[in-house]
Amino acid sequence: MTTKPLERPITDTNVDVDVPWQVVVWNDPVNLMDYVVWVLRRLFGHSVEEATRLMLAVHNEGKATVAQGPREQAEMDAFRLHQHGLWATIEK
């Protein structure tokens, strides 16, 4: 595989304090890396670059915040991620 430099920091820093619920995806030993990219693109409409960045953050850091918003939205995002077999949690 070729080297693809990361153009953005691995963790998200633009957390809005008014929107406290975060949807976190955790690393696991079974989900395929490309599959995780596909799911993130499919569910959140990310570009391939952004979805790949988030997937690598999950893989390398053990977890990554993939979405944030009001609690109801976060719970719906968690549902959709679990529907696709990703290990997702919600936290403030």
Binding site: M1, L32, D34, T52, H59
Partner: peptide, 26 residues
């Protein structure tokens, strides 16, 4: 069996995305 299923799934991911991804893993 797990690897067989994983390889099939990987092929389906590529078919659905329309491309093979390239990235470097630590």
């Amino acid at each position: 069996a797990l690897e067989y299923l994983a390889s099939l799934q990987q092929l389906l991911v590529i078919a659905l995305m329309g491309e093979e991804l390239e990235y470097e893993v630590e």
